[in-house]
Amino acid sequence: MLSAGRIRCIRREKRQSALYQYQNDSRYFAQVAEGLKEAGAKELSELGAEDVNPEFSGIYFRADKSTLYRINYLTRLLSRCLAPLISYPCHDSDILYQKARQIEWDEFFKSDGNTFAVSANVSDSSISHSKYAALRLKDAVADYFKEKTGQRPDVSVKNPDILLNLHIRNDEAVISLDTSGAALHKRGYREDTVSAPMQETVAAAIIRFSEWDGFVPLYDPMCGSGTLLCEALMQYSNIPAGVFRKQFGFEFLPDFDAAIWKKVKKEADGRIRELPKGLIAGSDVSVQAVRASKANLMGLHYGNNVSVEKADFRKLPALENHVIVTNPPYGIRMGGDEDLEMFFKNIGDFLKQKCKGSTAFVYFGDRKYIKNIGLEASWKKPIKAGGLDGRLVKYEMY
């Protein structure tokens, strides 16, 4: 009979001869909102990724361990980073199940200590239902543990420890582990909110597209729950986007290196810098919105250096030589109580009359109101996210 030590040695040798796909080629896949793909690819390169290649549904890239950890900790634009485990031709659900069952899932997690969930996307394939495909993968994982340990791991849809991703396209299946864990837009600073809050990755993209560098003040005259203000603060002060995250999916990879992760985190945290008072500020006509903004900012480093006040933008003093960023309320956030065409005309008048020498970046969740601003745009960028097909529009007030 083989000793326990010998069995572990054999398994280690087996792993080394049959590495998972991401271990063989250091290639990963990033999910990103439509309209942010080009900016996401640029950010990946800035964070040290190589062979960055945008595809129809995301971005492929290569990274060593430290770079993968850094990307997950610092990215402001990406939604998730996936580590492919295996890929194979998959013409029916039995092949899907059988191949998935062969993966040694206990290298990733324990049946009695960790929860898991499966997400799936299927297109142009014999298997046509993504929910059924996800169920078959889930069954394969559960049956693996049932046979090995006599116990099935628990499934947690809302907050799993391990998130597996299944992608089937043209009858080719890829099973990946989500190295991010929870979606990366969930920063952790949002303590309070108002209706229809802006997604954090979209707000971060707007700050990035504004090219704001901190040399002039930044102001949001309709700040809502303060997402743009929070993302501007995090960018200026070099606060990692994942600073509040207690766990990442990459910590469950069989080759996870805790020492490298500790070093990456320490280096990133060491670059955090103070925000001068008066550099970032905002306002909103809603008392609830002002309260939410302040609550969200208070959780961040130097959030108390961001000023937020209750004010109607039409009654604000001049904001000359500023960068203005804003996501005007509309539809659900307006409550249907105001003439929206006139509301957006008032925004245009405010920019024209009170923001001389400033540059404004206005995000239109509903782009039909762009024409009501009455100003010539320098450019328009499509940003699709959170079910919206919006436009970010740049206005320069000379």
Rank of each mutant, 00 (worst) to 15 (best):
I383M: 11
S111Q: 02
K310G: 10
N159H: 11
L392K: 05
D312F: 07
A268V: 05
M198A: 03
S225N: 12
V243I: 14
K345C: 06
K356R: 15
Q98Y: 13
F350L: 11
E191H: 12
F313T: 06
A33W: 08
S111R: 00
I383V: 05
A377V: 06
K131P: 07
L229W: 04
Q235E: 12
R245H: 05
K37Y: 02
F116C: 02
A203C: 01
Y219L: 01
M342H: 13
A63I: 02
Q98L: 15
Y330M: 03
Q288R: 14
E200A: 01
R76M: 01
D25H: 09
E172Y: 12
Q247N: 12
E191P: 02
S225M: 06
D349E: 15
E231R: 00
V323T: 15
Q23N: 00
K368F: 07
E231C: 00
I103W: 01
I175L: 04
N372I: 03
Y97S: 04
P317S: 08
K263I: 03
S237F: 03
T179V: 04
D112V: 04
W105A: 00
F350R: 09
W212R: 04
N372P: 00
G40Y: 06
L85P: 00
F256V: 11
K294A: 08
I162Q: 05
P221R: 07
V323H: 12
K294W: 10
F145R: 02
A117K: 10
D143H: 06
G35E: 12
A173S: 09
L297H: 08
L166C: 07
D64V: 06
A258I: 13
A292Y: 05
R27W: 03
S123R: 15
A289V: 03
P254F: 00
I206L: 02
Y97R: 11
V264S: 04
K262Y: 08
F56C: 03
S123L: 12
D94Q: 15
Y189Q: 10
A204P: 06
V194C: 11
T67R: 01
L77E: 03
